[in-house]
Amino acid sequence: MGREPVLYVSGWTALVVTAFLEVFLIMNGIVRNTLAFTISIAMIQSTIIAYIYQHLKYEESSVKMLPLTSFLMLLVLVSAAITSVLACTPYLG
């Protein structure tokens, strides 16, 4: 087996393990801030998917900038939208 298939299988293993871990930790009440935790896990999984399965690993930096820009702008939209009303937030408060 060449290096690429190993990478693909390793990536898949990492995705599955993190998914199991996420469910196990949350369902057993081990994680305190579930939102922050799940977003962190989602970011790790997204990076693996983009890097390995979307072949971003093999693209030049200018192409890598496209999803990165989109992600950063999304972060701005989400964080500004949520924090703009944080003062009256019962759930996240």
Partner: peptide, 12 residues
């Protein structure tokens, strides 16, 4: 998703 998070952050 930001819609979901926004509503979630406001929802009682």
């Amino acid at each position: 998703i930001s819609v979901a998070l926004f509503i979630m952050s406001r929802s009682l």
